[in-house]
Structures are given as structure tokens and as C-alpha cells.
Design a protein around this nucleic acid. Structure first.
Lengths: 153, 153
DNA sequence: AAAAATATGTTGCATTTACAACAATATTAT
DNA sequence: ATAATATTGTTGTAAATGCAACATATTTTT
């Protein structure tokens, strides 16, 4: 097994580049399919869907944005009518929580249907087993990183 | 095998999040170790090192930035004295090429030494075989994406 | 009870980034 | 030859982003 001497041969490089490609492609796919939310907004919507009564800060942790940007994403989703926000308490503290509107739920389903083809085609070259292992290894890798990294959120 | 219903359970999500973490951590590590180039500049330096007499556009393709930002990264590296730039030709066209200065070469070696510990510790939870498979699968995945995606560079 | 610390969300800002437009030059088509 | 197209690099710009600072409110410490 040859030792990687250059950054372009490293795992970190490959992860970075795949992610950058994914991001660029996502933006384009969302535009071409005329999806009127950004990929980030979609992620937020979907994360709210499967984490009901979550507050902004906890959402920020899940979507790995800081509090400021999470707030701004939610502003946009609220303006577009896909979520509503309300004050609630968590550990006796006032927090802002949010819920999907009917339009929001419909929007997620609509997007899921629209991007299904793209998601599947992007996995063409990998077997189910490879995909499973890839996913699993990435989780371990992330777990490792999170131990080193104190999130400022 | 359960079908992923939510974005936060998907491979794409995991890749995005790992990459975001890596980027955030890289910036901090570079600051803490008092490395006076940015992670992106380091990537450019290292890529120039193993691709001598490359022109800006080809470098841009390798580091997956657009031409504009590649030019700006090179401006910074030139100001800092780690590279020199010169006009050359490629296919009878005038192009800007670049080479590392002695300081640039020393800087790469210095950085490699400084970040070695971090790189190794980030892989603690994975076996060599897992790392190998992870790297290999990501390459396939990227290959797939690049077929769908026409780079505007 | 007062002070310090913590949690949560917002605002401001400097940096990064991707894209579009442009300039200059070379190649290809007509 | 002339026009159209392609290649390469730079400049301008709007959007995204991460961080620091701030405002509030609550908890913990003294």
C-alpha cells in the first residue's frame, strides 16, 4: 500500500472534492427542475419534518450551519410559507420552534419525487454493498472528527 | 436494508456534512498551528508541486475552483513569495504557468509536518482496509458525478 | 439578593465563492 | 481573408458563510 505523499492523493481531498461537486450539482439540479427552494432550504425542511418541535439551535447542529445562517434560512422558508414559527420553551428557556405548513409538506414530497432520478443515477457505479460501506465508514469518520471539534453553535 | 426516507439519512448528507466539518476544522487547525497560508492555498501549493508546468486553468480543474478564484489564490501565494509566475505557451496559446520558490517548497514540508498528527488522529476509528475502501468508493462516486456534470472552467 | 455565567436568537461584517462579462489571443469556418 | 468560435486569464458582483458582538432571558454562583 503506497503512502500518500500529496494532498491530492488523500482521503480528505477526495471528500472535499466530492462534496464540492455535489453542492455545485445540487444547485444546478434544483434550478433545472425549477425547485423554488435552495438545496440548503430543502435540507432544513426535511430535517424539521423528522425532528418535530426542534428549536433553532438544535436544528443548526443537525444541518451544520451556525445559528445566524440557520435563522436566515428559516426566515426565507417562513416568507415562502413552508414553515410557521412560534415561541415555546425548552428547559424553561424561551426558544423559537417551527412546524411545516401543509404547503411545506407538499413541497418536500414534490422535491423528493423530482430529485429521485438524479439521486439514483449518481449511484450507478456503486453496488449496494459498496454504498452501505461507504455510508458507514463516513459516519465513523465524522464521529472521529466531531470528537476533535468543539462546535461553536 | 431500510430505504432512506429522509435526507439526513442519505449518503449525500453524510458526504456534505463530513466535508463541511473537514473544512471548518482545517481552518481552525491551520490557525492554531500558525500556518500562514489558508488550507486552499496549501492545496494549490501541493498541487503545483506535483504538477510542474501546469497552467492556471488546468490547476483550477484539479483544485476544483473556478478560474477567477484560482487566479486570486495564486495572487496571494505570489505576494507571499511561495510561487513565481511566468508566461509560457500551451498548444500555441499564451498561458500563465507557475513554479514553487524555495520558500514555497520549504513551506509545504513545514505544513506537512505540522498537520501530520491531525491527519492521523482523524483516522483513528477506521482500519486501513476501511480507509482504502472509503477512498476507492468515493473516487467511483466522483467519477459518476463528473459524467453528469459539465465543469464550467 | 446580586453578580456571573449560560442559552438562544439576531445583526453586522469580512471572506469566500460561483458566475457573468470582458479582454486578448489563437484557431476554425466560410 | 474575414468572420465566427474557442481558450485563457481578470474584473465585477451578488449570494452564502462563519464569526464576533449584541440583546434577552434564565440559571448558577457567591
Amino acid at each position: 500500500m503506497p503512502k500518500s505523499l500529496h494532498y491530492t492523493d488523500t482521503l480528505n481531498y477526495e471528500i472535499e472534492q466530492v462534496a464540492r461537486l455535489l453542492r455545485l450539482i445540487s444547485v444546478r439540479v434544483f434550478e433545472q427542475l425549477e425547485i423554488d427552494v435552495t438545496p440548503d432550504e430543502y435540507v432544513a425542511l426535511d430535517t424539521i419534518l423528522c425532528n418535530s418541535s426542534i428549536c433553532q439551535r438544535d436544528l443548526a447542529k443537525l444541518i451544520l450551519k451556525d445559528r445566524a445562517n440557520t435563522g436566515r434560512i428559516l426566515n426565507s422558508l417562513e416568507e415562502k410559507g413552508f414553515i410557521t414559527r412560534f415561541i415555546d420553551t425548552k428547559n424553561n428557556r424561551l426558544v423559537k420552534k417551527m412546524g411545516l405548513t401543509e404547503n411545506g409538506v407538499r413541497k418536500i414530497q414534490q422535491i423528493n419525487k423530482k430529485i429521485e432520478g438524479f439521486i439514483n443515477s449518481s449511484k450507478r457505479k456503486l453496488t449496494d454493498e459498496e454504498l452501505e460501506n461507504l455510508h458507514c465508514s463516513l459516519k465513523k469518520f465524522r464521529c472521529n472528527l466531531e470528537e476533535v471539534f468543539e462546535m461553536n453553535i
